[in-house]
Design a protein around this nucleic acid. Structure first.
Length: 209
DNA sequence: CACCAGGCAAGTA
DNA sequence: TACTTGCATGGT
């Protein structure tokens, strides 16, 4: 954003990004299961690599937790190899599939029947699901109004005068956005997607502004 | 060649 | 609480 005002209200920042980039229509997934699997695979990983892994899973009819639950970890790791950290992520996906199977009979409908605090706790209890992954699932799969903070969010804050806030904890940044924005699923959805879109034009190595 | 990309867990102090 | 390290592929 050229000539960005110093510390613009976050809603103003949202409007600027929306004007500049337009609606993003996130998350890029056809089903809740695909969304959740993508959320694990994209951890610290370029989305283009995630797409290759998702294609492999789709070809093997494994974009669902019933299949992942019974799939050998080694086979899963082989299919998601392009997404990097494949041994870790295979274990993470198995853990998530195991939780859904053991506690909800394999039913995402039943999982998503939990209220937001319980659902968040349930997700965070799975090894490999941290705050960003949990909140992404809550926002984009469960449609709950939770603001998602990621590395780009911190960079956006830094670039617009919120330097100290950008260095604070995950939950502090969530609170910052939550207090300034109406609790609206569609707004949080679009804002986070726009922040990623902005981030792709502002790589770490680029000169600021 | 180095650095980066839609994090997280586990260990240390 | 606040660091540090390992995890790994594919693109620039």
């Amino acid at each position: 954003m050229t000539n960005a005002p110093q510390r613009p209200p976050l809603l103003t920042l949202y409007q600027s990004l929306l004007d500049r980039y337009g609606r993003q229509r996130w998350w890029p997934a056809r089903t809740r299961a695909e969304m959740m699997i993508g959320a694990i695979l994209t951890q610290n990983t370029a989305w283009t690599n995630v797409e290759k892994a998702l294609s492999n899973l789709r070809e093997n009819k494994a974009l669902n937790f019933q299949t992942l639950e019974t799939l050998p970890t080694e086979k899963l790791a082989e299919w998601i190899r392009p997404a990097g950290y494949f041994n870790q992520k295979a274990g993470y996906l198995k853990a998530l599939a195991g939780m859904i199977h053991a506690d909800f009979g394999g039913s995402l409908d039943r999982l998503f029947r939990l209220d937001t605090p319980e659902l968040r706790k349930k997700l965070l209890a799975v090894k490999g699901v941290g705050p960003e992954t949990a909140d992404s699932i809550l926002l984009y799969a469960a449609k709950r109004p939770l603001f998602v903070v990621d590395a780009y969010t911190r960079r956006l804050l830094t670039a617009h005068g919120y330097e100290e806030e950008a260095r604070s904890s995950y939950n502090t940044i969530v609170t910052l956005f939550t207090l300034q924005l109406p609790a609206d699923v569609q707004l949080y959805n679009e804002f986070h997607a726009l922040i990623i879109r902005w981030g792709k034009n502002h790589p770490k190595t680029a000169v600021a502004q």
